[in-house]
Amino acid sequence: MIEVRNLTKNYGARRAIDSLDFSVNKGEVVGFLGPNGAGKSTTMKIITGFMAPTSGKALVAGYDVFENPLEVKRRIGYLPEHPPVYGDMFVKEYLEFVANLKGVEKSKISNLVKKAIEKTNLGQVQTRLIQNLSKGFRQRVGIAQALVSDPEVLILDEPTVGLDPKQVAEIRDLIKELRGHHTLILSTHILPEVEATCERIIIINQGKIVAQESLSNISSVNKGSRQITFKVRREIDALITRLSLMDGVLKCFKGNSPGSVVAEISGQDDMVELLAKEVIMSGAGLLEMQSMAQLEDVFIKLTYGSVEQ
């Protein structure tokens, strides 16, 4: 559905993205991950036809973004970093305007507007002026705006920024609901969001793709190792020595907070079980045991070099 070939963009002397190559299949939900300033938004702006690349090309539904921009734009719903809403318009009126702008058939507009309002839970504010809405509601109007033309491709740039936890959960459910109907690219630096919603991730750092994996394969990027953090009552040093001697423990060191120990292990759940048993038998008084989310681990390793110690 989306194909990006050798895409490069320079802002003056600074290279924002550097020969990106990836493709997204129809109906897939792809997470676009990267630290701030990695080039996520730039890539999205190029795919949506907002700006031109310095070199390389992007295809959406078989149309080149720069040879057939109108065909591409008809098929894309885009939520930019800042929701593109007019303060002096009413929510419903704004959505009708966007539907018209996107060239939706006249007869379908009222139905699609109603659906978008329903999906984003804007029913209670649909007759209010956008400038009087809170940030969370504006963000949701922005999402509704991307949905209203029922596009084949949805590109959401940090859709949950500024929302409260309940709204974040709602948006995640919405994204899950959209899966299958739309091809979706989700840019974010919030990892649990990606874990909750995406099937595949693309990690980008300093303008380059550093990993492209399905979420279930992500541990392979990490070469099978994972980190477990313990919190214990006493005898930390003895515990560290004891754990370091175990087979399968690659490294064991003191964590940041008092009483915490971090063990880097290879292998899967069996190893975690063994480790837990060992800690309990050591008599150090286990209070807490936590496996660092794999994605977070991978992300930090790939983008910041190594895990903070």
Partner: peptide, 14 residues
Amino acid sequence: KMHTFDLLLTSPVT
């Protein structure tokens, strides 16, 4: 300034 230009430029209008 209000970033609504993003909407216009990513819509199928010239």
